[in-house]
Structure formats: C-alpha cells, structure tokens
C-alpha cells in the first residue's frame, strides 16, 4: 500500500435532509482525505455539517429523511455510498470505527461491558467465549481501565464518564480498524479527563497506524493533537491545511475569527472577542458566501457570488473571494 495514498477518501459529498419545508442541504461538496497514522481534525460549530459528514461515512443516517445526493466515499477500493449492506457491515468496525460523544447512551445498558466487547469479538473474529473474554480484558487494559479483570463484569452505568469513554474506545479499536472517527469524544467530560482521552486516542493511533478523524469545536484540542485541519461552515469546507500553517496563517476570515476568539492567557484582554452574529440556518442560507453577514472582510461580491474552494498554497485551500488577501494579512 502506498504511504501517500489516503486510507479514506471523500469526494464531492453532498447530503440532503427532506423536511417539511423542503430539502435541507446539510453537507455540500465535502472532500476529505484521511491518511494512516495521521490525525485529521474537522473543526466547526454546531450545525456546520461535521457530524453529518461522519455519520454519512459510517452509513448511520436514516434514509429517508437523509439522502446522499452526490459524491463518493472511497475505502479500500469500494465506494461506501453505493456499497451493499454486506460490504457496509464488514467495513463498519473492521475498516472504519466510530467513538461517540456520549458514551453512556452509546453503550447498551442491559449488558456488562465485557459482554459487549466479547460479543463483538465472537461474532466478527469467531473467538470462543473464553478467548473473547480474555481479549476483552486485554482491550480494557489497553485503554487503561484499572482492575480490568474485575471490572469486566460491570454494567456501563457503574463506570465514570471517562471510564465509559475508554470502554467505547476499546470497542471501537477491538477489530483493529484502519480509520477511527471520534465525534466530539471529550465534550461530555471534564477537562482533566478530556486530556487523558485525547492522549489515549493519539497513542492508539500511533500504535495501530490508524487514521484518526477528530470531529470537534475545540480549537485547543485541534492545536494539540491534529496534523491536518479541515474547517467547516454551513455544510461546506471553508478552509484546509496542516495545523501549524492554518493556525499561524489562516486564509479564511472565519478561521481567523475562530482563532481570534480563543482565550489567550498571555493577553490580558478585558473581554473575549467573538464572531458577530449567529451561524445561518441551513434552510435559509444567505445568498453568496454563507459567511458574509458575519464577515469582517466582506465586499460586494461576497453577497452575490458563492466562492469556490481554491488552492492558495501547497496543501492549503480556502473558499473565500479574498483568501489570498487574508492569507497575506492584507484584509
């Protein structure tokens, strides 16, 4: 396998939801490349389409109302958009796995955690009851659950939030997936536990050589663990780049605004800066660039024309009419 080749490659993906007021385009023209051993962060606020993108990759959206209107999701030579149910079931868990935000509700409350992990191993790996249980304990140790051999027979509600998230991660990596998608894995946890979970994910990524997709709205987390960043706004990708470059030299006013609104302990500002306004509803998106009502660099053209996503430097791209100027610090 070529090291440069993406493990998971999404192209021109658009997803629509049928609603009473007509179709809502939740995701438009999204392209992503996930490489083995690298962490891709998808950054965006609520409703930006980042979770819908992840759920579409996993095939978890109910159709109807959701519908993939265009695009492809290439994984190991197969397009998951058109794949059969059988391929889908094989890829999920073994090829691509997912960690959800709220581990309590993402684990079945009526089975012990050991039961849930070993069931997966028995069904998918054909392990015997005893072997599956031994491997479940091993997995629990790997995600650093203390006294795993004793806790294997506990139910999800008997674990703390951080420990539950570890169990979720153990389940997700049980079948050694090539790509792991983590949808806001630390949002429900407190800050100290957040750091531990992120560290665990990064470590597993390194050990297994997985591609990690981290969906988050937390710039701090992105800065710490991501290699590449894709910024989404109103269902579109507005900017893409490596984390160092993007944080140092944003090429889209939205990214710039996000970075500016980060709390900076080294600066004694009286007030935290915020991007004015609120994100548009997908149903009544403004004409032209969806960000123009909130943009501090908007010109007349932004109100009428939708900017295309264009490359501005090696590995950098942005969807803004003035991206070059923003990139050069002139706007």
């Amino acid at each position: 396998m070529n090291a440069d080749e993406a493990a998971l490659s999404v192209r021109a993906l658009s997803v629509e939801f049928a609603t009473r007021e007509g179709p809502v385009r939740a995701v438009r023209d999204v392209a992503l490349d996930v490489y083995a051993g690298r962490t891709l962060a998808i950054l965006g606020e609520s409703g930006s389409g980042k979770s819908v993108t992840a759920l579409t990759i996993m095939g978890l959206l109910d159709s109807p109302p959701a519908r993939v209107t265009s695009g492809s999701i290439m994984f190991e030579g197969a397009d998951l958009v058109t794949a059969t149910e059988r391929t889908r079931m094989r890829v999920n868990g073994e090829g691509i796995a997912m960690v959800f935000q709220d581990a309590l509700s993402a684990l079945n409350p009526v089975y012990t955690v050991g039961n849930q992990i070993s069931e997966l191993l028995r069904v998918r790996r054909g392990l015997s009851r005893a072997a599956a249980r031994a491997q479940a304990i091993e997995l629990m140790e790997r995600v650093r659950i203390p006294a795993a051999a004793r806790r294997v027979d506990d139910y999800p509600h008997q674990f703390s939030g951080g420990m539950r998230q570890r169990i979720m991660i153990a389940l997700a990596v049980a079948l050694d997936p090539r790509v792991l998608i983590a949808d806001e894995p630390t949002t429900a946890l407190d800050v100290t536990v957040q750091a531990q979970i992120m560290e665990l994910l990064t470590e597993l990524r390194r050990e297994n050589g997985m591609g990690l997709v981290l969906i988050t709205h937390d710039l701090g987390v992105v800065a710490e663990v991501a290699d590449d960043v894709t910024v989404m706004y109103s269902g579109r990708i507005v900017e893409r780049g490596t984390v160092e470059e993007l944080f140092q030299r944003p090429a889209h006013p939205y990214t710039r605004g996000l970075l500016r609104s980060m709390p900076r302990p080294d600066r004694q500002d009286d007030e935290l800066w915020a991007i004015p306004g609120a994100p548009p509803s997908s149903l009544h998106a403004p004409g032209g660039c969806p960000f123009h009502p909130r943009c501090d660099a908007a010109v007349d053209r932004c109100r009428s024309d939708q900017p295309e996503f264009e490359l501005i430097a090696a590995g950098r791209g942005s969807a803004c009419h003035r991206s070059q100027e923003v990139f050069d610090g002139r706007a």
Binding site: L55, M58, G59, L60, R88, M89, R90, V91, N92, G93, E94, A97, M98, F100, S105, A106, L107, N108, P109, L120, R124, M168, L171, A172, L175
Partner: peptide, 9 residues
C-alpha cells in the same frame, strides 16, 4: 447505542 452497534457493523 443502536447507532453504536451499527457503527460496529
């Protein structure tokens, strides 16, 4: 957790 199960195939 039903989505969780589906995500695991």
């Amino acid at each position: 957790y039903i989505d969780g199960a589906r995500a695991l195939g």
